[in-house]
Design a binder for these strands. Sequence first.
DNA 1: CTGAAAGCGCTAACAT
DNA 2: ATGTTAGCGCTTTCAG
Lengths: 353, 353
Amino acid sequence: MARRRQAVTIKHVAADAGVSLQTVSRVINNEPNVRPAMKEKVRASIDRLSYVPSIAAQRMSGSRSYLILAINDRDRTIADWTAREGRDWVDQMLLGGMLTCAERGYRMLIELVDTHSDHVERELSGAIAALQPDGVILTPPHSENPLITSFLAKTGIPFARIGSRQGGPGIAITMGDTPNARLATQHLLDHGHERIGFVAGPEEFSLSNRRIDGWKWAMDQAGHSHDDLCTRGDFGFESGKLAARKLLTLRDRPTAIICSSDQMTLAALELAREMGLEVPRDLSLVSFDNSPIVRFTDPALTAVDQPIAATASRAVELLIDSRNCPPPGEPVTVVGELVVRGSTGPAPPHGRR
Amino acid sequence: MARRRQAVTIKHVAADAGVSLQTVSRVINNEPNVRPAMKEKVRASIDRLSYVPSIAAQRMSGSRSYLILAINDRDRTIADWTAREGRDWVDQMLLGGMLTCAERGYRMLIELVDTHSDHVERELSGAIAALQPDGVILTPPHSENPLITSFLAKTGIPFARIGSRQGGPGIAITMGDTPNARLATQHLLDHGHERIGFVAGPEEFSLSNRRIDGWKWAMDQAGHSHDDLCTRGDFGFESGKLAARKLLTLRDRPTAIICSSDQMTLAALELAREMGLEVPRDLSLVSFDNSPIVRFTDPALTAVDQPIAATASRAVELLIDSRNCPPPGEPVTVVGELVVRGSTGPAPPHGRR
DNA sequence: CTGAAAGCGCTAACAT
DNA sequence: ATGTTAGCGCTTTCAG
């Protein structure tokens, strides 16, 4: 195997421009103390030779690696990819994260890490040691795993916690779960619904509780009780069916249900059909996620869109900028929006319930 | 910004194990000439200190970068991500490619490159120079772009051409387009169809023609003419509608159509409905791709599954192995399969056509 | 079989 | 404002 070396290095550029390595380095990194004339000359040489610095070398010399690591939950991600049901979380992460990285000369690398494993830290530290990224993006449920966050804090690598509002090290950045849930609830209230059920996600995800808060808040505001109207699932289809069944078999059953994931909403839709309920005539349904699938159901689902791409993009920016200016201590929020489709409508008249 | 250095380096391991750096290096790289006892001792130190080599340093010293670069078409990829219509090409690439990389200690990095740009080569060579990958995976339509392939050949970096059977440098690897098209056609022939239309993809993709070959072959075998039954689209919805219209407005219109992408099949389905044709009663439809969306149409589409994950995985293996053994000169084929769903059925009796 | 020395391409720190 | 020096962590010679 031939030993592959860089075709054109900083040395070539320096020689071509007739300056020292350092001057070239300064130009590359936009550092001060270079006369415009020199800068120009160096730039010309760089272009002529189409020189691009080796990130390995840049990393070696103690500066940046120009790599941002996005950590995703291994099992969930592989399950999504294998199921081929159109969940596009990773794609949206790439759309926002990767493109923003590219704009700034960085690259984004996806890494799958096992949450439930007892050696999360080893898995993660391995990736960190091997790649030496300049920033790490944590997605739920890693975002609040103390093993992970405290390890990352120790390394000194800036990191973002998507889906977390907790204090502590790292940049907290959420998609406005509380306001979004409020929004969804309000949409139903506006349609005259009073009994609005809520299928929350697992406690493992703190956003689950924040969504409950938003729903409760709106219900309280409207003066409707909600004591028996909250159940939980694990975001998956089966759990959603169970949770929906609990709600729909109540004596005074809800006329609308908000589910914390598309899969759970799909399950509720299926169950409603099985029970002879027509959506949205007898039951209105609001989903969370707005992944591609919700447009292909019948009726299409009204859903809270999770702005994953925008969030990933923002995270990347904050991470990269944190070299120069300290990141916000307060949680950052990138709000989603409600996309109204066919699964929500006016509450049925009292007689029909 | 604190200068971040590797927490534990090869030096620490060497000191801990009481051997020289080289011995540690040899153990890491599974090189010969290390006594089992030494190897054991070094391994123990590595575990104890949880040492992981820095890929930047490994790269610098002239060996591997442990990076595989997957090149995708910029416009198409971003369009897919933005449209959120469930196309999961990238996910499947990651599923196959990234996981296989991980098994072998490599990482996969996605890079978007503009095909139609006149500086494709600059874009690509920039990525190569910056990352120094150990292998590159080309996807259509880059796989047969001579600017790209000849540049890559010059660099000496092994690369795979997915969707290409052309000779020349690089490992050609396809998903069996000809046999797959034959399979799809045979499925329809078995159902008694004789007039089977074909909506091909753009000529820019050589696989388009290979699929036409498969269809023609099967039609010829069955003794059916196909002179007027082939049209082309660009894989997109609109083009599919146009192409399908051409076929469905023929005097002796086909009773079945095979389209070379899900979007085009969706378009054909919509057109059929508009024309008052019921699928599959009046018209059978077979799709290519089998992306998530095809299960959510009514009826669900019979489709040729493109084994993207398996192909990406195979490509990664061939690339990594090509360090040691020369890659196959012949094109590699990872065959897909036909997934039969509701959009295909028996040909309508002659009277009804 | 093992170790010492040299150097990959780049930047930080220190000259000038 | 520019150049010089040293060294990042590792592998590749080349000596023992």
